[in-house]
Every structure is written in C-alpha cells, then in structure tokens.
Amino acid sequence: MSMGGVYRAPSMGSVPALRLSRIAAIPFAPVLLVQGKRLRRETPKLPDAALPWSGSEAGPSALRLLVLGDSTAAGVGAATQDEALPGNLARELSARWSRGVEWTALGENGATARDLVERFLPVALEETYDFVFLSIGANDALDLRSRSAFGRDIRTLLTALRSRNPDAQLMMSSLPAFFRFVLLPNPLRWNLYLHSQNLETEARRIVAQFPGVIMSPAPPPYTDGFFATDLFHPSASGYKDWARFAIDDAFEKGQLA
C-alpha cells in the first residue's frame, strides 16, 4: 500500500506480467527503498546454527545428503543444524527409506545463486552425494536479480551437481511465500513476492530439463510457530514442517520411490 492507501496485490496468473516484475517495482522505488532500509535496521540478526554442520541418522546403507544454499542451509533460526533443515531432512529420508543418512550443510546467510556458483559449488563438488537439497533464491529476489541471471546460475549449479553425482536425487526448494510474511510491509511484500515468482518460474523451467531433478511446490500456509523470533527465518519447528512437506509431497507424487 502507499502511505495511507490500499495496495492491490499484482496478478500472478500471467507469465508475461511476471517477467516484468523488476519494471513493476519502479513506481514504488522510493517507498521500497525506505521500507527495505527500515526492515534491515529493525529486524533482529539471528546467528547461524551452531557447529557442527554435519551429522548422521543411524541405519543401514547410509545415504549421503548435502543441503546447499543460503541462510536456510546455514540453519539461521535454529540452535543446531540437527534442529534445522539438514537434520530434519535426514530424519524424513531415513524414515521413508529405512536407511541411515550422513548429512552435510554448506552455504551462507545472505547467499545468492551467484554466491553458490562462485564460492560454494567448488566445495560441494569435492565429495559425492546420494541426495542434494538446494535452497536458494530468496536473496536473489531481495536483490531484484534478473530472471536471466538467476536462471543461468541455477543451470550452472544443476549441471555441475548432476555431473558430479550422476545417480543422485536432486531437489530444489520453492522460493518463500513472501506474501505471507507479516514482517514485510506493502508494497514491499507484494513486489518481493511478484519478483520471487518470476525467478521461481524460470527455475521450474530449468529444473524440468534435468532428469532426476525435482522442485517442491509452493508451501502451504505457514503454521503457528513456523517463524523464528525475527519473523523471517524458520524456527526449529518451521524447519521440521518444511522438511516433512517437501519429502511427503515428493513421495506422494511418485517423484521419490
């Protein structure tokens, strides 16, 4: 909304409209700038999850899991990585496949897809994995990165990860449902959501071109307690919900067997 006015959410039904998401933000630029600065100044800065960033779930024939990405790979919002995305994904996979899981997290708070390509992909390629979960895109949306630049980075990541792990299952998470982030004021909230959908549409187009690579659907409404104290990152409970939703959905659709 403008100051004192009513802001109407942009339509998500048109792909051409999504492609113009950065242009759509221009009329709101002065307000977005003020709101963005205030958000960064007033939002609590939560730490990464404590070390170690690796662990295991007991069981036979342990599969190797890599969680690669931004603050959600870094476990921001949870005390430990076991309580964050890696540990919860490991428990879901272990329960589904009756196997052990050895998991590793790699990433950084604030990372974009370009950061992963330049700084974290070489490390990710040093080892091989059976399952790779890629959580990236939120900061690309926040930075209003272009659809084409984001798409190039996603393609680079998936090409390299598939080449290094030819038999692995690769899963990319959907981008956050920013329109449900009560922390974000409008018009920042809806412009951010519009642009995130632009980026996600491109990511889905690219993911569909890679055999054995899947992407989670948009998340259901966030539950009470999903968010950490900063109202932006998941809490330990939120990471548990996220991991269960992502793995359950993939199994129900027959994407994982």
Score class of each variant (00 low, 15 high):
Gly137Arg: 00
Gly87Asp: 01
Gly87Ser: 04
Gly36Thr: 14
Glu126Pro: 03
Asp140Lys: 03
Ala74Asn: 07
Ala138Cys: 00
Asp48Tyr: 03
Leu134Gln: 01
Arg91Leu: 09
Gly137Thr: 10
Ala141Glu: 01
Asn139Phe: 03
Glu57His: 13
Asp143Ser: 11
Val76Pro: 11
Glu92Asn: 09
Leu39His: 01
Asp130Gly: 12
Arg41Gly: 00
Ser61Gln: 13
Pro86Val: 06
Val67Gly: 09
Gly36Met: 08
Gly100Ile: 02
Gly55Trp: 10
Gly137Ala: 06
Ser61Ile: 06
Leu51Lys: 14
Gly77Ile: 10
Thr104Ile: 10
Asp70Thr: 12
Phe120Met: 12
Thr112Cys: 13
Trp53Thr: 01
Val76Thr: 15
Ala50Cys: 07
Ser135Ile: 12
Trp97Lys: 02
Ser54Gly: 02
Asp143Ile: 00
Leu32Thr: 04
Leu125Phe: 10
Leu65Thr: 06
Leu66Arg: 02
Leu134Asp: 00
Pro44Ile: 02
Gly107Ala: 00
Gln81Asp: 02
Asn109Ala: 09
Glu92Thr: 13
Ala141Lys: 01
Thr104Gln: 14
Leu89Tyr: 07
Val123Gln: 10
Ile23Tyr: 04
Leu51His: 05
Arg38Lys: 13
Leu68Lys: 04
Leu46Trp: 11
Pro30Gln: 08
Gly69Asp: 00
Lys45Val: 14
Ala84Leu: 04
Glu108Asn: 08
Leu89Met: 11
Gln81Pro: 00
Ser54Val: 14
Lys37Phe: 13
Val123Cys: 06
Ser54Leu: 11
Trp97Thr: 02
Pro60Tyr: 13
Trp103Tyr: 15
Ala29Cys: 07
Arg91Gly: 08
Ala62Lys: 14
Gln35Val: 06
Trp103Ile: 07
Ser98Phe: 02
Gln35His: 10
Arg99Leu: 13
Gly137Trp: 13
Leu32Tyr: 06
Ala111Val: 11
Ala49His: 05
Val132Pro: 05
Trp103Val: 04
Ala73Cys: 04
Val34His: 09
Leu85Lys: 08
Thr104Trp: 12
Leu51Ile: 00
Arg91Trp: 02
Arg119Phe: 14
Ala49Trp: 05
Val31Trp: 05
Ala50Tyr: 01
Pro122Asn: 02
Asn109Cys: 12
Leu116Glu: 07
Arg96Lys: 15
Lys37Ile: 15
Asn139Pro: 00
Asp48Met: 05
Val101Phe: 00
Gly36Lys: 06
Gln35Glu: 07
Asp143Arg: 15
Ala78Gly: 11
Glu92Arg: 15
Gly36Tyr: 09
Phe131Asn: 03
Ala24Glu: 00
Leu68Gln: 03
Asn109Gln: 14
Leu33Asn: 09
Gly107Cys: 07
Phe120Asn: 01
Arg114Asp: 08
Leu142Asp: 01
Leu63Ile: 15
Leu63His: 01
Ala50Trp: 04
Ala74Trp: 01
Gly55Ile: 07
Leu106Ile: 12
Ala111Tyr: 14
Gly137Asp: 03
Glu118Met: 13
Asp143Gln: 14
Asn88Trp: 08
Arg99His: 11
Lys45Trp: 03
Ser98Ile: 02
Thr104Met: 03
Leu65His: 04
Arg64Glu: 01
Leu85Arg: 11
Asp140Arg: 02
Val101Met: 13
Gln81Leu: 15
Leu116Gln: 08
Ser54Pro: 01
Leu125Gly: 07
Ser61Trp: 07
Thr72Leu: 03
Glu118Pro: 05
Ser94Gly: 14
Leu33Arg: 13
Ala74Lys: 05
Arg40Glu: 04
Asp140Pro: 05
Ser71Lys: 05
Ser71Pro: 09
Asp143Leu: 13
Ala111Cys: 07
Leu142Gly: 10
Val132Ala: 00
